[in-house]
Nucleic acid binder design. Structure first.
Lengths: 128, 128
DNA sequence: CCCATATTCAACCGTTTGGTTGACGATGGC
DNA sequence: GCCATCGTCAACCAAACGGTTGAATATGGG
């Protein structure tokens, strides 16, 4: 991945979109729901006590941030989690933490591999 | 750490503050500066083309999010990075990726295995 | 063809955000 | 004691945010 350092303005714009998208509890809840499975817009909206239009707006914001993708099949629009943007933000944050940057490089390579092959590696046990 | 699951409202509030604080490029730049060293408010403000009052507000937001702390010594108020809050947000995000920093050792073993054998390990069961 | 379903659009509204300016309280140096 | 410096406060502003409602635009089913 072309890492341009913490001052790349393109990355800055991307982080703006990502963090702003994550800064709303409804949107975070939506992301959690999509972790379980892809969902139609109407189904995403169902557990929330707000209008479908409001949820539609939230989904647009998540899409622009790259956190999800939406594909229309028939008259139903399916929402799918896209962890890429989250990964970028996560990597940015790691720079401030107590995590080992060497391992970071390794997991970036790992992620690229995973994302390219389309494999999702959910053998991760904790399952929250 | 007392992990209460992704629906703990206290954590939700904390994540709100954290992500909202991170959703502004000025504030992220300030955090980057503080990564190098502790700084006085005036010195933080110096490279930015906005008023001291504006920077002061940004610093208040960062403080309420727990991302920095401020200590007044004499008439100078020193700002210090506090990576703990960032770590909480980072951990939340990890739940969406294939990357698990808590389990980096296991991951490294897994990565070595993948790279050596070129094999990808488990197959996923059902597609979506 | 007609109707129900799925989703977005457009206009609107109150609140929050990110900035400004000017006045103000504290503190340290001479 | 005075003055310059450090930082915040208060009032204000435009723009963005998060929500609502009602109309509009597909699309699929009988």
């Amino acid at each position: 991945m072309a890492w341009r350092g913490p001052n790349d303005s393109r990355m800055d714009d991307k982080l703006d979109l990502t963090f702003q998208a994550l800064a709303d509890p409804t949107r975070r809840a939506i992301l959690s729901m999509l972790l379980e499975d892809d969902m139609a817009v109407t189904d995403v909206a169902e557990p929330f006590e707000m209008s479908l239009a409001a949820i539609s707006k939230h989904l647009t914001i998540l899409t622009r941030a790259g956190l999800i993708s939406q594909e229309k099949r028939g008259r139903v629009k399916w929402c799918k989690l896209e962890p890429d943007a989250m990964k970028a933000a996560s990597v940015w944050m790691q720079g401030f933490g107590q995590f080992d940057p060497v391992n970071l490089d390794a997991f970036e390579r790992f992620l690229e591999d995973v994302l390219e092959t389309g494999r999702e590696g959910d053998e991760r046990e904790g399952g929250r």
